[in-house]
Write a protein that binds this DNA or RNA. Structure first.
Length: 942
RNA sequence: GGGCGCGUAGCUCAGUUGGUUAGAGCACACGCUUGAUAAGCGUGGGGUCGGUGGUUCGAGUCCACUCGCGCCCA
């Protein structure tokens, strides 16, 4: 007789082979059919809300692994919170405006771009953005992310554009908005401002000059000498044309400066001048002056406030302090023109210096320059050198070649030119302090996020919100045609917002100024009645910073403030900060209650990813096509994402194995429950074997730990706990031991139904615990578990039966038994020692299968003996051997325990016959006449 | 150059208020099993805890410096 047919082997349709690439899209079809996102929300209609507000990715390019990780993490949070019983709407969005898209479109247009109307360019940009939204949406959905995919928020939607203006109107009303000069990269040939990304750096030949600025303040005492003349301070520059805008000279406060006496050919007498001490040799070498003498040195900060005379303009300027001053080139004394340089501008702000920009859009000097008015600035270089030489302030002039920015379009060198820009005042109405107070009230994950963003907020200058571009939301200001006075009122901004809500922001480019400016208004300054529209648009950060207004406050499913923002750490300066500031200014509170950040993807060596490097950026689609979304999600959940995230095919491939292990654990659970009906077969807790209660107690421990990890967004800890539970506690221990009872007991025996009772609970709980991460696999398991076998109701009748609507498991205190766990911890240690001894026998070829062995254990300790004695009849099952004998004292020829002291182990092959059915060696085999090949237990079973 | 982080086996992670020979899983090697079978089980090798110096009876853990890497600024 073939006894294999008489044992209860697992049966299931749940495939061992995952085949995720094929299976996941099938589930997606089902989810689409039942409208899973809507079904989940419907099931939570009465529940408290949990709002995760999506930071919009840029609508350009495909979804790469970094963007994919971000969306997966958000989805894990959303699915977890849903299971915790919250109504968890998720409205994804896209950042659609901005320079990169405009640049792409304008590049495609080539020369035609100059003559194409702005409204037309904007239409092309919109089409471009839409094409990538479609691609990215498909790729995000493929990851198993649920959300409002058919109604996402888009920053080019008229309602969104209107919201940006509504927010802006509040800020205008509260007095945060003002205009002032700021230097920008400027192409005088294209007559346009350029973004950093629009610059191309290349070598350029130009002048290099050393100039002395005559001092007005006497400094000799500072250097410990006495001189008859105040002397000078020496600067070096490669842009002589910026000298008309010079208003200061910057020195490093901690650097040593030398007072140098030298013979001046121009002056025909000795002169003293100041340069940084480390530069003396090099500078005077370059000047070709051999006779010089350092009279003394002084620290830079001692010279702070010293005054000098501008070399050719009637102007008195100060010496100021700046940390960026270097001594590698130049003199360590830096010519400072806040209208012509970024650092100069910052220094200008710090010292309240005037921002001079005596250059018109064509690059010609204006009246303000006082010299060479109307001349192109590059042409003026030589003239200015001549002027300096004539008034004896030029010490040296030569030609050098250096890296210089050029316009990406016309390839001509660009200049820094100060232009009027719109700003948001951070210190107005205590906004900075209020924002910092809100930061302190926000929960930051990880905690150092608070330190990081606070530091940035404390240091940040006013926010320049204007951009000289086309693809964005226009700044709705108008100017008096006659006198140029700008008009920006909350009323007009709100009027424009209403127009945008109906017609979209492109109306600004199609309609006249009068359409937006209240009729009959006259210029307060000159009485002019004609107005022109502002050309500038908003910084895209102002748009995304308005998402709380456009989305969280307006979308019917959401509520303000959001519970969570979740983005990369770069957004501490970006979206988090630039959402916080305007929200604090308009609403008085932060737009978020908590902020979670993740690190950046790096390569296997931990270096940043770059397109040029081998492999380049991994694309999400490439990974889902190769491994399946659940493997990608499992990998995402397994790393501590607050750090950098090393990513490669190898590390993701490595998660395919644990995925299979978890999958197989589920398959085994399902397989052994094929004939189990919980309503009829459940064995009460009191009748369960201790080891079954051990498994239930460990399961409670798992629930407790995993829940706490999810609450802290520490998914990698949940991954490790779940995985170790499957591998160590279930597969290698409990399930291995349970096989005999499952397979060989009679189908309906209590010992078998008891195990099944436990397996059913574990299956149900574990499916829920992995559902936020393994979204497809959990659903597949759920669908393979018929409704009546699930531990608790999935939802009300008529609802979609999805694991993602099910509720999160909670710890059942009745199932927790710490003492029992402690006892079994000890038994596991004994087991480890026994298995090591069995392995030794295997190596000697004495046994093969462990069931071939009998084990004798001796305890040289009374308490240990009593402990083992209490489990005597369970020990063969626990060790998976045929028989175990217990004894006291020492045992001849035995092996001492390693894990357990005072224990000695002796294993040898069993002398009994093998039961053909259960493979145990038993003395009862052969006793039965009908079934001579079976042991007594198996005779009963068949 | 500055601010904020990170650095424990090949990989992903544990390591309580400083306290014995630094743990787990995977990977690797060698076996067992063939009733979870493109599965399951066992045993084993592998780490100067980025480096140096210090505090201490004792440091992966505390302090200083240093190297490497990332994000954000300059």
């Amino acid at each position: 007789m073939n006894y294999k047919d008489t044992i209860n082997l697992p049966k299931t349709d749940f495939a061992m082979k995952a085949d995720l690439v094929k299976r996941e899209p099938e589930l997606h079809r089902w989810w689409a059919e039942v409208d899973i996102y809507r079904a989940i929300l419907n099931a939570r209609r009465a529940a408290p809300k949990y709002v995760l507000h999506d930071g919009p990715p840029y609508a350009n390019g495909e979804v790469h692994i970094g963007t994919g990780i971000n969306k997966i993490l958000k989805d894990i949070v959303v699915k977890y919170k849903t299971m915790r019983g919250f109504e968890t709407p998720y409205v994804p969005g896209w950042d659609c405006h901005g320079q990169p898209i405009e640049h792409k479109v304008v590049t495609q247009l080539g020369r035609k771009a100059q003559t194409t109307p702005k409204a037309e360019i904007r239409e092309m940009c919109k089409k471009y953005a839409e094409s990538f939204i479609d691609i990215q949406r498909r790729q995000f959905k493929r990851l198993g992310v649920f959300g409002e995919w058919e109604r996402p928020y888009l920053t080019f939607d008229p309602t969104y554009e209107a919201s940006v203006l509504e927010l802006f109107a509040d800020l205008v009303e509260k007095g945060h908005v003002y205009r002032k000069l700021k230097p920008v990269h400027w192409c005088m040939s294209c007559r346009t401002a350029l973004a950093e990304a629009e610059l191309e750096y290349g070598d350029e030949k130009g002048p290099s000059i050393y100039v002395r600025f005559p001092l007005r303040t006497r400094v000799d005492k500072l250097f410990g000498v006495k001189l008859s003349d105040p002397g000078s301070v020496m600067i070096w520059t490669t842009t002589p044309w910026t000298l008309p805008a010079n208003v200061a000279t910057a020195l490093h406060p901690q650097l040593n400066y030398a007072l140098v006496k030298y013979e001046s050919v121009a002056l025909g007498r000795p002169e003293t001048t100041i340069v940084a001490a480390p530069t003396v040799e090099r500078v005077f070498g370059a000047l070709g002056i051999k006779n010089f003498e350092v009279l003394g040195t002084a620290e830079g900060k001692a010279l702070n406030g010293t005054e000098y005379t501008h070399p050719f303009i009637n102007r008195t300027c100060p010496i100021v302090m700046a940390d960026y001053v270097r001594v590698e080139d130049g003199t360590g004394c830096v010519h400072t023109a806040p209208g012509h340089g970024q650092e100069d501008y910052a220094t200008g702000i710090e010292y309240n210096l005037p921002v001079l920009s005596p250059v018109d859009p064509d690059g010609r000097f204006t009246q303000e320059a006082e010299v060479f008015v109307g001349m192109n600035v590059f042409d003026a270089d030589q003239k200015i050198c001549k002027l300096l030489a004539d008034n004896k302030t030029l010490l040296r002039q030569e030609e050098i070649t250096h890296s210089y920015p050029h316009c990406w379009r016309c390839k001509k060198p660009v200049i820094f030119r100060a232009t009027e820009q719109w700003f948001i005042a951070v210190d107005h109405a205590n906004a900075r302090e209020k924002a910092l107070a809100q930061v302190a009230k926000t929960k930051w994950y990880p905690e150092w996020g608070e330190v990081r963003i606070s530091g940035m907020l404390r240091e940040r200058p006013d926010w320049c919100i204007s951009r000289q571009r086309t693809w964005g939301v226009p700044i709705p200001a108008v100017y008096c045609q006659k006198c140029g006075k700008p008009f920006l009122t909350a009323e007009n901004v709100r009027r424009t917002a209403a127009i945008f809500a109906k017609e979209g922001a492109s109306a600004w480019f199609l309609q006249p100024a009068s359409y937006f400016h209240s009729g009959g208004a006259k210029c307060e300054k000159c009485g002019g009645a004609e107005f022109r529209k502002e050309d500038d648009i908003f910084d895209v950060w102002f748009e995304s910073g308005a998402s709380h207004r456009a989305v969280v406050m307006k979308h019917e499913a959401l509520s303000f403030p959001a519970d969570l923002y979740l983005e990369g750490t770069d957004q501490h300066r970006g979206w988090f900060q630039l959402s916080l500031l305007p929200t604090v200014m308009s609403q008085g509170v932060a737009p978020f209650r908590a902020v979670l950040t993740h690190g950046f993807v790096v390569d296997e060596e931990g270096d940043k990813l770059s397109k040029s490097k081998a492999g380049g950026l991994l694309q999400a689609e490439e990974l889902t096509d190769k491994y399946g979304a659940d493997v990608l999600r499992l990998w995402t959940s397994s790393v501590n994402f607050t750090d950098d995230i090393p990513v490669s095919h190898k590390v993701i491939q490595e998660r395919a194995e644990p995925y299979m292990k978890i999958r197989n654990t589920f398959r085994y659970l399902l397989g052994n429950l094929f004939d189990f009906d919980p309503t009829r077969h459940t064995v009460p807790l009191g009748q369960l074997h201790e080891i079954d209660r051990w498994a239930l107690s460990r399961l409670q421990n798992l629930i407790r730990r995993v829940t706490s990890h999810y609450e802290r967004f520490e998914f990698y800890r949940a991954y490790h706990d779940i995985y170790n539970f499957c591998v160590v506690e279930m597969s290698a221990f409990y399930l291995d031991i349970a096989k005999d009872r499952l397979y060989c007991s009679g189908a309906d025996w209590t010992e078998r139904r008891g195990v099944q009772t436990v397996l059913g609970t574990i299956l149900d709980t574990l499916t829920r615990l992995v559902a936020p991460v393994l979204v497809h696999t959990a659903e597949e398991i759920w669908r393979n578990t018929s409704a009546h076998k699930k531990g608790s109701a999935a939802g009300s009748p008529g609802e979609v039966d999805s694991v993602h609507i099910a509720t999160w498991p909670t710890v059942d205190p009745e199932l927790v038994d710490v003492d029992l766990e402690t006892r079994w911890d000890r038994l596991v240690k004994v087991r480890t020692d026994v298995l090591r001894e069995l392995e030794r026998l295997r190596k000697e070829k004495t046994i093969g299968s462990s069931l071939e062995a009998n084990v004798t254990l001796h305890a040289d300790d009374e308490k240990l003996y009593e402990f083992l004695k209490g489990y005597e009849k369970d020990l063969p099952m626990v060790f998976i051997v045929s028989n175990v004998k217990l004894g006291c004292g020492l045992l001849k020829g035995s092996t001492p325990g390693v894990e357990v002291q005072k224990l000695s182990i002796l294993a040898k092959p069993s002398e009994h016959k093998r039961c053909e059915r259960c493979w145990n060696r038993r003395d009862t085999v052969g006793k039965d006449t009908t079934h001579p090949a079976l042991c007594a237990r198996c005779v009963r079973a068949v």
